[in-house]
């Protein structure tokens, strides 16, 4: 462990914090272009966060301390997750203490706090949102874990850097099982980040909302943290996708200044491409009915399992 590794670790966290709103802004921009609308500025999410942070906080009378604690816990979990995912370098001091399974656990913890906080005030929407979120979660979480486990079977380790290094070193080349996992992963990403076929982030339409229903009681800085955490979550998921399927450009092995100089622009390029892709998916697909979501996620889960099967069968 040297100073540079700690610096990279810190940098990863800071970059994630800083870039996450921009990623969302970019997705929104691409979507607007694709839909022939005038696009909002790339900086709009930052402005929203600033506005919210400066506002007074309104809390429901019967909210418990859990309600006020949750935004901080969720935000903290997401920042930590950003530090674990090898988005720029694989030699990160923190990764030794959390592998991919722990990462999924971290996401699950954030989800659970989110659902509990939503139930805390005791409104109809809050509990409905919590129920739906857990419904999405109990299928999406195993699907994500299966995707990661397929990748870890290929590289014989559940540590994300080991997976990334094994893939980046290129001696695996094409691996059919990863095709299945990639499809599953995209489906999970859409569901977990409340993107279009599953949830619509832009609406408060009562009957279809999931994520927004849970946030209804939040305001001011708490809401800002929740929104920021959601943006970080999207950023993290995209970065997990890179770590598992597109590890090019990541500084493998000992981190030097050159590696970082390559890694940062590579990450930016990949993020831009992924954002555009996400916008495209969201534009061409339609929101589904809530009771269709389990079907969607079961498909994702089964694809991941199939990836596992193909891995064992074809040995690659």
């Amino acid at each position: 462990m040297n100073a540079l590794e700690w610096l990279t670790q810190l940098l990863e966290g800071v970059v994630a914090l800083a870039a996450a709103p921009a990623l969302l802004g970019w997705v929104n921009q691409c979507r607007a272009w694709l839909q022939n609308r005038r696009a909002p500025s790339l900086w709009q999410p930052y402005r929203n966060l600033r506005k919210l942070l400066h506002k007074e906080v309104l809390i429901a009378e019967n909210a418990s301390p859990l309600f006020r604690l949750a935004p901080y816990v969720i935000f903290g979990a997401m920042v930590l997750a950003a530090g674990i995912i090898p988005s720029m370098g694989t030699r990160l001091p923190l990764v030794a203490s959390a592998d991919a399974i722990a990462l999924v656990g971290l996401f699950a913890a954030a989800r659970m706090f989110m659902a509990l906080a939503a139930m805390d005030v005791g409104t109809a929407f809050g509990t409905m949102g919590a129920r739906r979120e857990m419904m999405v979660g109990f299928l999406a979480e195993p699907a994500l874990l299966m995707v990661i486990l397929v990748a870890s079977l290929t590289s014989s380790s559940t540590a994300l850097p080991a997976i990334t290094e094994a893939l980046a070193s290129g001696h695996l080349g094409l691996s059919p099982s990863l095709a299945f996992s990639a499809v599953a992963f995209v489906l999970v990403l859409l569901a977990e980040n409340a993107r279009i076929p599953v949830d619509n982030p832009a609406t408060h339409l009562e009957l279809t909302m999931i994520h927004e229903a849970m946030l209804l009681e939040y305001s001011g800085r708490h809401l800002a943290l929740m929104e920021w955490a959601a943006q970080l979550k999207l950023f993290n998921y995209v970065c997990i996708g890179f770590a598992l399927f597109l590890p090019w450009g990541v500084a493998v092995g000992a981190i030097g200044p050159v590696g970082l100089l390559v890694a940062v622009p590579a990450l930016a390029l990949k993020l831009a491409a992924a954002g555009a892709g996400l916008a495209l998916i969201e534009t061409v697909s339609a929101k589904m009915r809530v009771m269709r979501i389990p079907e969607f996620l079961a498909t994702a889960f089964l694809f991941a399992v199939l990836g596992l099967l193909v891995h064992v069968l074809l040995g690659a």
Partner: peptide, 22 residues
Amino acid sequence: VLGAALAGYVMVKFYGVIFLGR
């Protein structure tokens, strides 16, 4: 893995309905 995720669902239900809300 599915069982673990379902356990999360169960616990949100258990805890949320008993201790949270009104």
